[in-house]
Nucleic acid binder design. Structure first.
Length: 561
DNA sequence: AATTAAGGCGCG
DNA sequence: AAAGCGCGCCTTAATT
């Protein structure tokens, strides 16, 4: 059954509906402070909590020590179904833009918890009223759209996975990634020197700056300014177009080594230095705010703190609590495996069966080395035409025609301005109107050749986007299925708050970190693997593709891999 | 003073 | 001239 939560003048209603959306009893009226108890009393295997936005409703439940098994995130569903090819023409897709199309309003932040407010009902405040949103009507519209869709089963999986992901994201933010500030600070001191106030150059950087000015014979050089550095390098007689790392690495000059070191440390300081630590780590936890579906392909984005760019350099500060372990799991060569499965390429799937997929490609004879196999595979999925990647793509196409044909077809569709879809039906955007207008103009009687070249270039660019969309998006669906399944498995282990037992604390596209009591760690590792097997079946049925993981049980994140 | 663009680099 | 995909976020430099 569905239990639809809504906010009405000063309180909440919970409206029971059947799985099909029909009335299933009287709505219950309750006070906001009663939500946690109500959830605890009514949650169960057959229940789906329906709400406007997980990010607005669920934090209050979590803060009160509660949790839910399943939910329907209406705003995420709305966005998927409005744009999906499979629901084109549905009432939901045809309706004018409404409040459901707006981004979710930010979560109402409870006042900082004081000793008194910890026991105050105000802490459980959910969110401001969504007066213009009718979740019951919206749920029915979504159920109707799915029922009339060309592939309702896939869409149901997609919606369930997206909503499960929303629960995971909220729980990760709630629990936080264990973070040892003292370890981080030691690491910064070792690399940069003693802590300095914001705006002051740390000792190690200052020393490198002195060396740079001397070796470039430029006493005024500001190494923080790329334009300044570029001028200085050219004055020293170096032929260089930018100060990008890969370009500098090709140069022979005594200033290059300290310059690269300066840039490396400067990056550490500005991205994950003392300022970051002060702003993002509280009470031994980093609380990443993920944006579910924040990337067009369906990948998550992150808001603040750079959760999806956590440098390997600082992962040593991620340390399990005493008596706990981190279970770090990484899906090996996820995207090529997804491509093999979605294209039905049994040869490519076989290349990855029970081994590193790139090694399997080498064993197939298509290329000579693992590095070539990797470059070629990435090149095929990204649309490389030149360089190391582009060079070996044709060999891959001969060895694995079905897989390569799938991405090729996606690229052609994109070049024509058509949408493409993932395995479960997430649909790519189409180019802006101006893209089509420019194309039509270029191919009309007065289209200049330069104009046509520009248009063709834009078309190929969009084709590379759609080429990658189908693979990256389907991989994101696999990852959502993996996480959602793991979440259910972990939840069955422990009652009570999410953080009482093993729980997810970090996620980066194809990698997961679970914080687990030491006694549970091996069990968790098994569950992580089992969830990956489940995800493969959910997405690709009986197709013989495997999704091997590297799983490590470690004390700190840097010890994995 | 505030906003936008460009350069650059971290992650997958 | 074009150049393998998707992001977020830091800084400096340019613009309003």
């Amino acid at each position: 059954m569905h239990l639809v939560l809504a906010r009405v003048d000063g309180g909440l209603t919970a409206t029971p509906l059947t799985d099909a959306g029909a009335p299933d009893g009287q709505p219950t009226r309750l006070a906001e402070s009663a939500l946690r108890a109500f959830v605890a009393a009514h949650d169960g295997p057959g229940v789906r909590w329906v709400w406007s936005d997980t990010a607005r409703w669920y934090p209050a439940v979590l803060a009160a020590g509660g949790r839910v098994a399943r939910c329907v995130d209406l705003r995420l569903g709305h966005r998927l179904l409005r744009s999906a090819l499979a629901t084109r023409g549905s009432a939901l897709a045809e309706a004018p833009v409404s409040a459901w199309d707006a981004a979710a309003a930010p979560e109402a932040r409870p006042a900082p918890a004081t000793q008194a407010s910890l026991f105050d009902d105000d802490l459980f405040t959910v969110a401001a009223a969504d007066d213009d949103l009718d979740p019951v009507a919206e749920l029915r519209a979504q159920l109707d759209a799915v029922a009339g869709a060309t592939e309702p089963g896939a869409l149901r999986l997609l919606l369930a996975a997206e909503s499960a992901g929303a629960l995971v994201a909220a729980e990760i933010k709630h629990a936080g990634l264990p973070w040892r500030s003292d370890v981080h600070e030691q690491l910064l001191a070792d690399a940069l020197g003693p802590r300095v106030p914001y705006g002051v150059r740390p000792r190690k950087l200052e020393e490198l700056a002195v060396v740079l000015r001397q070796r470039l014979d430029d006493p005024e050089l500001n190494p923080d300014s790329p334009a300044d550095v570029l001028r200085s390098l050219r004055r020293a007689g170096l032929v260089v177009d930018s100060t990008r790392k890969w370009e500098l690495e090709r140069l022979e000059h005594p200033a290059i080594e300290p310059l690269l070191e300066y840039k490396r440390l400067y990056r550490l300081l500005t991205a994950n230095g003392w300022t970051w630590l002060d702003e993002w780590v509280q009470d031994g936890r980093f609380h990443p705010e993920y944006v579910v579906g924040g990337v067009v392909t369906g990948r998550w984005a992150a808001n603040g703190g750079g959760a999806l760019q956590l440098p390997k350099q600082v992962r040593g500060a991620v340390v399990a609590d005493p008596g706990w372990e981190l279970v770090v799991a990484d899906a090996a060569q996820l995207e090529p495996r997804v491509l093999a499965a979605m294209s039905g390429d049994t040869d490519m799937a076989a290349a990855g069966d029970g081994q590193d997929l790139y090694d399997g490609v080498v064993a197939s004879g298509a290329v000579q080395t693992r590095q070539q196999a990797k470059m070629a595979m990435l090149g095929a999925m990204y649309g490389a035409t030149q360089g190391e990647g582009g060079r070996f793509v044709p060999r891959l196409a001969r060895a694995f025609p079905r897989a390569l044909d799938l991405v090729e077809q996606a690229a052609r569709a994109g070049e024509r301005g058509e949408p493409v879809t993932t395995r479960l039906g997430r649909t790519s955007p189409v180019p802006e109107q101006s893209w089509f207008e420019a194309r039509n103009r270029a191919y009309s009687v007065d289209g200049a050749p330069a104009m046509q070249r520009a248009v063709e270039s834009r078309a190929r660019s969009w084709g590379r986007f759609t080429r990658n969309f189908v693979v990256q998006g389907t991989a994101a669906e696999w990852a959502l299925s993996w996480m959602g399944g793991l979440r259910t498995r972990l939840a069955a282990r422990t009652d009570g708050p999410v953080t009482a037992g093993p729980h997810m604390v970090f996620f980066v596209h194809d990698e997961l970190v679970v914080h687990a009591p030491a006694a549970d760690a091996e069990w968790v590792a098994e569950q992580v693997r089992a969830a990956a097997v489940d995800a493969g079946r959910i997405m690709f049925g009986g197709f013989p593709v495997t999704f091997p993981l590297t799983v490590a049980v470690v004390r700190s994140y840097d010890q994995a891999k």
